[in-house]
């Protein structure tokens, strides 16, 4: 069963990664930034799995599974921070967080 080349997958992965980074750079809500980081990680995962297919050994897939777990950990901590901040009535906008200035 022949589908598209690996390069198609990689191009898709790159676009995903770029979309995610744009989200991180341009959005100000920490929640959406976290979601965008997830998209970046997914892009990397897609690349890993596509390359695993190319080389025919599963190292890339194992890596991708580990990345999922790590992503989940980051999300836990990130969401924990966001909830704590909202309880303390801090702005949920990274541009308006200006307590820390010189």
């Amino acid at each position: 069963m022949h589908g598209p080349d690996i390069s198609w997958y990689i191009a898709l992965a790159v676009i995903l990664f770029a979309t995610g980074s744009l989200g991180v750079l341009l959005r100000r809500s920490p929640l959406i930034i976290l979601l965008s980081v997830e998209i970046m990680l997914n892009g990397a995962n897609l690349a890993l799995i596509a390359f695993a297919r190319r080389f025919g050994h599963e190292d890339g897939q194992v890596f991708a599974v580990a990345v999922m777990a790590i992503a989940a950990s980051e999300v836990v901590v990130g969401l924990g921070l966001i909830v704590a901040m909202s309880r303390r009535n801090l702005e949920l906008d990274v541009d308006k967080l200006r307590t820390l200035r010189g």
């Binding site: 980081v37 980051e74 990130g78 921070l81």
Partner: peptide
Amino acid sequence: SLEAGLKYLVVGAV
């Protein structure tokens, strides 16, 4: 402190 944690997390995750 929370703000520091969040900023570090976001940039660190990127």
